[in-house]
């Protein structure tokens, strides 16, 4: 059974986070992945493409303009969840997986607003003990008010 301290977070949203999509940050991301797509690396090629500019690879949403955490992309609501899980004795955390739905491309120069919500928290009993699954759903909206993507990330605490 999960304590009230954890389950009370279900449905709660974090403060909106503002992200800027800079060319250097897109390329740093692509370099780490090993992605040499000309839409990312070749300004002229990208300008002549149907996007008209460099685009971010799907799943890259820029970098927060402000942060105060060792994990810059973690919404405070997620940190609250992790803190509560650790306090309840589930101190080992692994990333369970991610799901995206994309609606619109993200271009260089975009400013996005990300809003994270704890969509679900549930426990599963396994031979190795109790696993706590938490799903954070984050929506990303650009400067034109267009929803560009929704991401659902699952963390597993044990």
């Amino acid at each position: 059974m999960l304590s009230e301290e954890i389950t009370r977070l279900i449905g709660k949203s974090g403060e909106p986070m503002i992200l800027e999509v800079e060319r250097g940050a897109i390329r740093k991301f692509a370099d780490a992945v090993g992605d040499r797509n000309p839409l990312i690396w070749d300004d002229e090629y990208a300008r002549n493409s149907r996007y008209g500019s460099v685009v971010a690879p799907p799943g890259f949403f820029g970098w927060p303009v402000k942060w105060d955490s060792p994990m810059p992309f973690f919404s405070p609501i997620r940190e609250e969840l992790i803190t509560a899980s650790i306090k309840a004795g589930f101190s080992r955390i692994v990333d369970g997986g991610i799901e995206y739905e994309f609606f619109h491309p993200v271009r260089v120069g975009d400013t996005l607003v990300a809003v994270a919500k704890i969509a679900d928290i549930y426990a599963r009993e396994t031979k190795g003990g109790t696993l706590v699954f938490s799903v954070t759903e984050t929506s990303y909206t650009n400067q034109h008010g267009v929803l560009v993507a929704v991401a659902s990330q699952t963390l597993i605490n044990r």
Binding site: G59, Y100, F102
Partner: peptide, 18 residues
């Protein structure tokens, strides 16, 4: 996926589990 589908296609949904 993006290498394969090229820039005229649109990746609509994606999921993976670790």
């Amino acid at each position: 996926l993006t290498d394969w589908i090229g820039e005229e296609a649109f990746l609509k949904k994606f999921s993976c589990q670790f």
